[in-house]
Write a protein that binds this DNA or RNA. Structure first.
Length: 461
RNA sequence: UCCCGGGUAGCUCAGCUGGCAGAGCAGGUGGCUGUUAACCACCCUGUCGGGGGUUCGAAUCCCUCCCCGGGAGCCA
């Protein structure tokens, strides 16, 4: 089909060209002698103004050019004589692909609340806001690969279906092909030996353990794929299905890990600043929850580092009264994290060296034997965006931690093998992709940064 | 899962000390010689979230269930 994308119309010197554009009508304004259509095709934040003079043969098609209708328009690009846009298309021909009955089409040219748009998930990408969110998401996804590929990391495809139930990252969804109307039982329990895989299978909650064996063979790797949590979490920061990025580096310690995390976030931020100028300006103008200068700060300023123990000291000095107690050995609560990022440091904070009992078994025990080489990256307004650690590479230490955490060793022999044969220091982290998109777009609700959000009681499509 | 706040026209919301269901926007029609989520005039719009109860009478009071939002827990 002969078609020029709006992104191209705007980015090139197209004045004087005779071309054809396709898209969806955002709004139509008519007067006696001339009509205007704002057209969007999703390729850019901008809408193209179509000008239809009364004498144009296209004028008769105007009554059908309602908000939401899909059309093709041919015309000549002109410099716009009016304020509001630099160029416009003087239309000679309009073809309507698909009507949109204005009495039934749910989107109107005026704005809608995000809550309402959430109910029409299949149409919301046509709105300014969601078009912008998904364009930024796409730029970020590409930047993830560019960052790691540029540093020689191998993208590894860890499984979506796993038999490993001890990743310690929350409740898991069971994957089964058993007849749920007639489940086979043995000694009162579901007999998974009769299931598809001969044992119980789950949707993955993390690709980390598999990424570790790849890292212990090829050096530096990363995963980027969907992960699943069956937690009954009803918040603006949790999804049941979300995309996670998990780099894993051989011959690396916690310092390397933190450096990678910081470089990574700053690279992604820089890419968005470069490639999503219009989108950022849009978020800044309409939502006021994020600004270009904030993103520039994130992209350039060094992150603050503080140990868990020092963070506790800082929090104890705070005048603010916290709901939850501050006591060495207890995990930091949301209110504590917020205080650190929003009041004390006013920016991203990396908290390191947490007490071993509140962290996962695979994290490397520090020499004090009380803390582990773990780090969390906290962002203002979002909280934890990255959780990472240097992994325990010493067989005896790891076995001890696993026993203490009641991890069944017999299922994890393969994991221990990595420490038996050619073990090496290694480190990695996990980053929740949607939380990053959330921060960078300023969207308050994580359900608004993924096309088809999954959460308890929520599975449209 | 817990704690708050909500659910009334297509959308955003008012009405809630019980007494005829409203406004703005959207939509329709007409007007307007270049508009900018245009403007002016007129018109149309209802399972007051579902169920049950109290009452002469319930959008309004009570019970219950569902859904949405904010916060918390869990986590990324």
């Amino acid at each position: 089909m002969d078609r020029t994308r709006l992104l191209q119309v705007f980015s090139e010197d197209s004045i004087g060209q005779d071309l054809t554009v396709c898209g969806w009508v955002r709004s139509r304004r008519e007067s006696k002698g001339v009509a205007f259509i704002a057209l969007s095709d999703g390729s850019t934040q901008e809408t193209l103004q179509l000008v239809v003079p009364a004498e144009s043969p296209a004028f008769t098609e105007l009554p059908r050019c309602n908000t939401g209708a899909s059309i093709r328009a041919r015309g000549v690009v002109r410099e716009s004589p009016a304020k509001g846009q630099k160029i416009e298309l003087e239309v000679s021909e309009i073809h309507i692909f698909g009507d949109a009955d204005p009495e039934k089409y749910p989107l109107q040219k005026k704005g809608h609340t995000l809550e309402f748009l959430r109910e029409i998930g299949h149409l919301r990408p046509r709105s300014n806001t969601f078009g912008a969110v998904f364009r930024v998401r796409n730029v970020l996804a590409k930047a993830v690969h560019d960052f790691f590929q540029g540093r020689g990391f191998m993208w590894v495809h860890t499984p979506v279906i796993t038999s490993s139930d001890c990743e310690g990252a929350g409740d898991m969804f069971t994957v089964t092909s058993l007849d749920l109307e007639d489940v086979p039982k043995k000694e009162g329990q579901v007999d998974f030996s009769q299931d598809f895989f001969g044992k119980r299978a789950y949707l993955t909650v993390s690709g980390q353990l598999e990424a570790e064996f790849m890292a212990m063979s090829v050096g530096d790797v990363y995963t980027f794929g969907p992960t699943f949590r069956a937690e009954n979490s009803n918040t603006s920061r949790h999804l049941s299905e979300f995309w996670m990025i998990e780099p894993e580096m051989a011959f690396a310690d916690l310092q390397d890990d933190m450096k990678l995390a910081e470089d990574f976030i700053q690279f992604l931020c820089t890419q968005v600043i470069e490639k999503c100028e219009k989108e950022i300006a849009f978020f800044e103008k309409f939502f006021k929850t994020i600004s270009l200068s904030q993103l520039q700060d994130l992209a350039t300023k060094e992150f603050y580092h503080i140990s868990y123990t020092d963070a506790l000291t800082q929090l104890e000095k705070a005048r603010k009264k916290f709901e939850f107690p501050l006591q060495w050995g207890l995990d930091l609560q949301s209110e504590h994290e917020r205080y650190l990022t929003e009041i004390v440091f006013k920016g991203p904070v990396v908290v390191t060296d947490y007490p071993k009992d509140i962290k996962a078994f695979y994290m490397r025990l520090n020499d004090d034997e009380k803390t582990v080489a773990a780090m969390d990256v906290l962002l203002p307004g979002i909280g934890e965006i990255i959780g990472g650690s240097q992994r325990e590479e010493r067989l005896d230490m790891l076995t001890k931690r696993m026993k203490a955490s009641e991890i069944p060793l017999e299922h994890m022999e393969w994991y221990l093998d990595l420490r038996r044969f050619g073990s090496a220091p290694h480190a990695g982290f996990g980053l929740g992709f949607e939380r990053l998109v959330q921060y960078i777009t300023g969207m308050h609700n994580i359900r608004d940064v993924i096309p088809c959000p999954r959460a308890p009681q929520l599975i449209k499509f």
